[in-house]
Design a binder for these strands. Structure first.
Lengths: 208, 208
DNA sequence: GTCTATAACTAGATAGAC
DNA sequence: GTCTATCTAGTTATAGAC
């Protein structure tokens, strides 16, 4: 296994757990059992390392997600909002085959990216992977054409918040569900709980 | 104005904007125009300063919120979920009279507290202000008795996530709404958008 | 209570030997 | 490509004069 991958593997675990600001290069190289200087040799800077960690997941996720959403858009029948959000399940759970705990790690990283480091990662994702966002809004529009662009903007951000925040604290939530309700829940279980919630939220009657 | 309050005022602005980890005591004392050593003299440590910033808001918010929720619980008629979530509007917007941008600042701080510093603030809030949480779940149960305790647990956490995440990035969202839809939105406007969303989410049909 | 000075430590990044 | 050693700059926290 290459030094570069050792660094990426160690970094994603620590970034997901403690955030980007909260993780030092020394912790990463120590967990990955590589030399401190290797990070700057292979990635140039901490910021570039963060981008590389996210890109490894996005490159795995985005083609599958795009084709699932594109299928909904091209289909003749009108999808429900549940269909649209369910299109995320397969591609997201596939990350578990790509890497151990991949789904959970990726979603936690996404949450970190929105709150840490004042949104530079949000900028990075929306500019580097614009097609995913375009197909998604198109699919939602097909499922719920009455929703104005502005309403959709707000509700998709609320949805993003729900998912990302839930996954950032999913370890704690799964622990609580276990101790309070004697229920074994895994990440797929959390996803199945959250989909009806966000679908109903997006489908809510229009406000004012 | 006392040194202690100068520090609290400067700290809350920076904490909300850049997170707890991302803000140094030097930035705080520099913005507040007080001496660096004053933080440790008045608060003992950075961690205690964080608690003090949150407590100042919670002590203003929690009695109003508790009485609004208690009123719903004691009322003879069954409230809707919209009623329950709308009970937050008054107490939250009151923070704007307590301090300039108080509502937005407080909700951003809450968001930081959930993701920064691995949940020590979540622990602090749930142990220091348990009555708020108890009254809230009681009110939701009254509005939607069919919802099991476990379903409610999940949906309330989804809701917490939606609100907190939205508010953490509310400045960015308000900017986008302004440039993309030529719409002036303030924090009250965001709250009015989000309430139908979370009410519908909590009221969603039970999964599987 | 407020200040200066500084201790004790950690951060990201790099030069240069191998 | 990998290492040690080190630089520069930042961090929290504190001792002690005023």
């Amino acid at each position: 296994m290459s030094t570069k991958n050792k660094i990426l593997d160690a970094a994603e675990v620590l970034f997901a757990d403690k955030g980007f600001n909260g993780t030092s290069l020394r912790e990463i190289t120590s967990l990955g059992e590589v030399n401190l200087a290797a990070v700057n040799y292979h990635f140039g800077s901490k910021k570039e390392l963060i981008k590389a960690v996210m890109s490894r997941y996005m490159n795995e996720l985005s083609p599958r997600l795009e084709s699932a959403l594109a299928a909904l858009c091209q289909d003749d029948v009108q999808p429900t909002l549940n269909d649209v959000f369910s299109a995320f399940i397969g591609p997201l759970l596939h990350l578990n085959e790509f890497k151990e705990n991949g789904t959970s790690t990726f979603l936690q990283l996404l949450g970190r990216g929105y709150t840490d480091s004042q949104g530079f990662l949000r900028w990075f994702l929306t500019t580097q992977y614009p097609d995913v966002f375009a197909h998604f809004t198109q699919a939602v529009h097909k499922a719920y054409p009455e929703l104005s662009a502005e309403e959709m903007f707000w509700r998709l951000h609320f949805t993003m918040g729900t998912i990302v925040f839930t996954m950032s604290s999913s370890d704690a939530l799964i622990d609580i569900a276990h101790s309070d309700f004697e229920r074994e829940v895994d990440i797929a279980g959390v996803i199945k709980q959250v989909i009806p919630y966000v679908a109903a939220g997006v489908a809510a009657p229009i406000a004012f």
